[in-house]
């Protein structure tokens, strides 16, 4: 069960906005890199976000580059889950591999700053601020297990191999 605030973003937020290529020299210095999370979408994001908050986005979140640093800096900023209408495929996979839940739902019902409560087991999202309850899309079985174990490396350590 997670509880936190919604940070709303629009459609088509690319990995270039999440963590711009001009900071590539910081990719081996993750704490420094993470200071630029979401910078070209909302320069004030890092200073405002609190551990436990959520990113709530429109369609095709995370399109573009395969840089895993995109979900990584979001996770390092303390974000506990990403909610979006849809998510680009490489970003989706990368987030799950890092143990960061990505939930597909109708984010139009959530407003910026709303207080949310998310129950992953029950598959429910409650917007405490406006009382709206939402479900979220099914995640493939193998991704659920990777998520449950806390990411792809933890999954491998536990199972020793990729298991369907």
């Amino acid at each position: 069960m997670f509880k936190g605030r919604a940070f709303k973003f629009g459609d088509g937020i690319s990995t270039d906005q999440i963590i711009p290529g001009r900071f590539a020299h910081l990719r081996s210095n993750l704490p420094e890199l993470a200071k630029h999370a979401m910078e070209d979408a909302d320069p004030s994001f890092v200073s405002r976000v609190k551990p436990g908050d959520f990113i709530v986005a429109g369609a095709n979140f995370g399109l573009g580059s395969s840089r895993e640093h995109a979900p990584l800096v979001i996770k390092m900023a303390g974000v506990k889950a990403i909610l979006a209408k849809s998510v680009a495929r490489i970003f989706f996979r990368n987030a799950i591999n890092l143990g960061l839940p990505v939930l597909i739902c109708d984010t139009d019902k959530i407003n910026d700053g709303d207080e949310l409560e998310i129950d992953l087991e029950a598959g429910s999202i409650l917007d405490i601020t406006n009382g709206v309850k939402l479900g979220f899309g099914k995640i493939p079985e193998i991704m659920l297990r990777i998520l449950d174990d806390g990411g792809l490396l933890a999954y491998l350590e536990k199972h020793g191999d990729l298991k369907l």
């Binding site: 580059s65 395969s66 895993e68 490489i90 996979r93 591999n97 890092l98 490396l153 491998l156």
Partner: peptide, 27 residues
């Protein structure tokens, strides 16, 4: 499998070529 989204380029030669992230490629 390439840790770069434009790995898809090799599809022009009939390869199933697909971009993934760093951890997927490590594994």
């Amino acid at each position: 499998i390439g840790a770069d989204s434009h790995t898809v380029t090799a599809g022009g030669l009939g390869a199933f070529a697909c971009g993934m992230g760093s951890t997927d490629v490590a594994v």
